[in-house]
Amino acid sequence: MFRTTVIPRFGDFDGLKHANNISIAIWFEQARTPIFRIFTPDLDLSYENWKLIMARTEYEYVGEMFLGPDVEIITYISRIGNSSFVVTQEAWQDDRKGAIGRSTIVHYDFINKTSVPLPDEIRKELEKHFKEEEQNK
């Protein structure tokens, strides 16, 4: 599991003083960087070296977040398949959950345009950050 602290910017909030939906997506993207480093430690974005493609993202807004307090993003792996995995993220502010994000990411060969099975060493690293997602009640 990874923890990332985000310092919200004034522009991350709308006229109702709530965190803008797109800002939350950007916070989650920022907090996925440690996952990306498992596959590409130097984050080389060249076509030949990047190994991941985003297949799906979804966001669930479960509470309000406001300008002021920092936001903690908790990131973990909630599913590992043959060539894909799900990253689940939670945004917390003042000990209250404000949003949940899920991203399905595929291990991908951009040159041959096909998914590729996760190598054993990568799978083991992902398993270190595995946590079953708690179901909201």
Rank of each mutant, 00 (worst) to 15 (best):
Q30T: 13
V6L: 07
T75H: 05
R3K: 14
L126G: 08
M54T: 15
F85I: 01
V116P: 05
S23K: 00
W92A: 01
D120C: 10
E134W: 09
I22Q: 13
R37I: 00
P119H: 08
V87A: 06
G63S: 07
S23V: 08
I35R: 08
D42A: 14
V6H: 01
E29C: 07
D70G: 03
E132L: 05
T75S: 08
V116Q: 11
L45W: 12
R56V: 00
E127N: 11
S23M: 01
P119R: 07
Y47D: 13
K113M: 10
P8N: 04
G68I: 06
I73V: 15
E134A: 13
G15H: 10
F110C: 01
E125T: 14
N20W: 11
P117V: 00
K51G: 08
I22D: 13
T5Q: 13
K131C: 12
T57V: 14
E121S: 13
Q89S: 07
K128R: 08
A31C: 02
G68N: 00
I22M: 14
I24W: 06
I35F: 05
D44G: 00
M54N: 13
R123L: 02
A99E: 01
S78M: 01
K124C: 03
M54R: 14
A19T: 14
L67D: 08
V86D: 12
D95Y: 12
G11C: 14
F110V: 02
T88G: 12
I24A: 08
H129A: 00
Q93S: 04
D14S: 02
S83V: 10
G98Y: 05
D42V: 08
M54W: 12
T114I: 12
I100K: 01
R56H: 14
Q135V: 14
E72F: 00
G68Q: 03
K51N: 12
D70Q: 03
K137D: 15
T75L: 04
I7R: 13
H129G: 07
T40W: 05
K17S: 15
I122S: 02
K97D: 01
G81T: 07
E58H: 09
V6N: 04
V86H: 03
V106L: 04
L45S: 15
V71L: 10
R32P: 02
N82I: 06
W27T: 04
A25H: 09
R9F: 06
K137P: 14
Y61M: 08
H129F: 06
E132Y: 03
L45T: 15
T57K: 02
L67S: 13
D95F: 09
F66L: 12
G81A: 04
R96M: 12
L126R: 06
R9V: 05
L67H: 15
V62K: 06
